[in-house]
Design a protein around this nucleic acid. Structure first.
Lengths: 253, 253
DNA sequence: AAAGACTTTTCACTGTGTGAAAAGACTGGA
DNA sequence: TCCAGTCTTTTCACACAGTGAAAAGTCTTT
């Protein structure tokens, strides 16, 4: 099997991605010393790494500051055209959005986070910005159907990595609460949420069948909470399930 | 200045990106042995690199085959929200597309290629697929305004790297032809093309003012050649120039 | 004009990254 | 069913790639 986790660490490669991650998580360009500080590396090493990344187009240096470069778009494009799930997503999400009037989103788990893979806006676009590629938490909103599929040890790691499990509305959530809710999701096969990650937003999510929990995906419908109440949302669950099944089939090919 | 090119090579990091590039250029998932072959690496090394990339989410292993993973989308998102040019692009391109009815595209140079950064479709969408992130050549179509801004030695490298300078319509182009055309572009400040990179397509392109030729960008208008003739296209040059200037200003901030 | 902070280069050491080869899985053909 | 060939994964000993401290060179601020 191809999923082995070789212990050999490749320190320098690992560090290159630490640098990329630092730049990804910053919304402004960073100077060398700042990148070094945030990545926990020496300035000399950081400079060398940034040099390679720059020559490859993954980093651009403007004046005195570094930020991500256009080569990042190229590999994203490469992912979108190869990945069977992404390729199947657009029509399925479009139909969901059309029949429900809600925004349809596809997430995929990546490590202890989820990433927005595709999205089709409904009648009330929530859009602030094109969210494709955004990293979002697994313990809130649609993330929960992904968390529900995690192995025990992974879930432990997730909970350990999150400071506060509470929702954006201020409702506190204990570890036990979360575990109970995940159990419920496993039984029901979907999740309904209001004011969990985004204030004033509600949604339903269902898991997309996957070979392993690492590459778990989810489809969701969401919209403004005051206009779409729980009963309406729950009414869309069959539609959602159908879409999830369709995506699961597409993925298997 | 921050643009130094440290000689220290960082072989393993370089190789990691070789692997990524191999996966990017393949439209199907690849097996370990195939990745190793194309990247020119030993299977052992390739396996180790793929292991790191996989843990980071940049590579996904499905069954026996590797392809790019969702983390690629995340860093692309990071690029789009940080890069001043990308952020300024959407409204400018939208206006161009609206007033001309043509498709408006923004490219940026990356090494010896260009990458599609943003695009707004006109009345006759040429779209086959979302092209954002696509790597395209510098010696055809809109690429020429970028090539025209290159340093001599870079241009030499470009010409050396391209097997056949000819257009898609079969028209042969000598090195001298190309150099002459680039000189003309430098004088005129724009480029008109028909049947260069895409058969049946014509367009005009103008350079976006940039501090250095490495991060040169270009804006273009394009559409079906039989519906938009040379004189119409040339008529849009002032509009195009205005857009290019606006983008140049946005970039300076 | 001088101090301070940041970037870049240099250098000697050490542990990371390396590929060959062995061991272990698959795969398909007979 | 077994065997041969091909692919994946692990092991290992060696060499040199990657490292950070410190020096040298910049830019910035007062």
């Amino acid at each position: 099997m191809a999923a082995g986790q070789p212990q050999t660490s490749m320190r320098s490669v690992e560090r290159a991605f630490d640098v990329i991650e630092v730049l990804e998580r910053s919304d402004t360009p960073l100077r060398l010393s700042e990148v070094a500080r945030r990545a926990g590396l020496s300035p000399a090493t950081t400079l060398r790494l940034l040099g390679v990344l720059q020559r490859r187009g993954f980093v651009v240096a403007e004046q005195q500051a570094y930020h991500l470069g256009p080569a990042t778009l190229s590999i994203a494009h490469g992912f979108l055209v190869t990945d069977s799930l992404s390729r199947a997503a657009t029509p399925v999400l479009q139909e969901l959005a059309a029949t429900t009037g809600l925004t349809a989103t596809l997430h995929i788990r990546s490590g202890l986070e989820r990433i927005v893979i595709a999205r089709v806006d409904g009648a009330d676009p929530l859009r602030y910005q094109l969210p494709i590629g955004r990293r979002l938490p697994l313990h809130l909103g649609a993330g929960k159907v992904l968390a529900a599929a995690m192995r025990e040890d992974e879930l432990d790691a997730l909970i350990a990595s999150v400071r506060d499990l509470g929702t954006v509305s201020g409702k506190p959530v204990s570890e036990a609460d979360l575990r109970a809710e995940l159990e419920q999701i496993r039984e029901r096969g979907f999740h309904f949420s209001v004011n969990e990650r985004v204030l004033g937003s509600s949604g339903v999510s269902a898991p997309v069948p996957a070979p392993d929990s690492h590459s778990m995906a989810s489809v969701s419908l969401s919209g403004p909470a005051e206009r779409h109440h729980e009963d309406e949302m729950l009414g869309w669950v069959p539609e959602l399930r159908r879409a999830a099944a369709a995506l699961g089939r597409a993925r298997a090919l």
